[in-house]
Design a protein around this nucleic acid. Sequence first.
DNA 1: TTCATTTCTTAACTTTAGTGAACGAATTTA
DNA 2: TAAATTCGTTCACTAAAGTTAAGAAATGAA
Lengths: 193, 193
Amino acid sequence: MQDILFDFISKYVSLTEDEKNAILSLDIFRSVKKGAILLKEGQKSQDNYFVLKGCIRKYYIIDGEEKTTAFFTEMEGLTPHCAINNAPSEYFISCVEDTILIVANTDMGVELNTKFPKFQLMCGVLSEELLAKQQINFDEFKTSSPEQRYMNLLQKRPDLIQRVPQHQLASYLGIKPQSLSRLRARIVEKNKG
Amino acid sequence: MQDILFDFISKYVSLTEDEKNAILSLDIFRSVKKGAILLKEGQKSQDNYFVLKGCIRKYYIIDGEEKTTAFFTEMEGLTPHCAINNAPSEYFISCVEDTILIVANTDMGVELNTKFPKFQLMCGVLSEELLAKQQINFDEFKTSSPEQRYMNLLQKRPDLIQRVPQHQLASYLGIKPQSLSRLRARIVEKNKG
DNA sequence: TTCATTTCTTAACTTTAGTGAACGAATTTA
DNA sequence: TAAATTCGTTCACTAAAGTTAAGAAATGAA
């Protein structure tokens, strides 16, 4: 399990045994059941999540309706807004599947960063990468229709379409489940004719 | 003009005269006319932009149509994706109004950062702030209808509605200019009834 | 397994956005 | 200033998404 983590880190910085042990000693690995809720609206938490295996989901409840805005799968990390500004969370985080996570709070991060400046370097790179990815995603979302968004997702994250319930996917695409069903039927129809 | 910059910076770190002079010696201030294009699709550039006064706009041309995805006004900065990965730009950047900018390329940044670690600190904070803002914006966009997005904009950035042409605003909201006109008429109608 | 709940799809109807065209107003350009 | 272009709005029509409801399929719990 730890190997997955160290393989990932090795893409950014190389670690000594000391450093690896420092990470392991933090006891950060968590195994979480499908459906479990990691963070609730209104809750304060310092925890950051990094998915080693499985899938977690970020969603709001607006007018009693779940609005899913993001999924995080293998090798993707999530720093909840509430962990940055120490305010109650505006959203929920839950597990789409049985998931193996790294859960690290901000203090741990600070501790590691001061002991091993390498980490700070890696975090900088990661956050820059993330910002860039985020911006491109947003632009793509804005400039395309629901149907295009679905086709795009089919190309870029085909796994999501398999592993995530339709109604969660729908709200991720900014539409209702019924519209997603219809839209899919429409696409099949086009490919026939 | 420089005062605007130093006032802004002073919110994050305090600068010595030396440091201020180091910044000024870079000769980074640019005055740009309305309509001027700062970056074109396909072009490579290392330049980052920071708006001191005025407004710049980021847009794609997709199937011959302009798709505006962002506006940057006073005290907002833009690091084009092409400046990070040294690839041709996928989008354009142009001036919505006569604008006073700071234009800094990546080398300058590196030079300042090594001379004055303070800057690196500030950049870290800024990029974290930006990422958080970006994520909230994206979530809001995804979870709301065009009409809600317009109402939201009216609250959060009323200045944009005044200073930006309607058709650019429309595509920023993810709709066509005709739909924005109609939507506005609809809102007025509601407030009458 | 059986029952209950959740999920997905379909359908009819409503609302809203996209499209193409027209027109006046505002802005540019010659 | 005059002509040309761009811009914003309106209209009629089309296409797509929202809404409400119903039923089938899949999932989960007792």
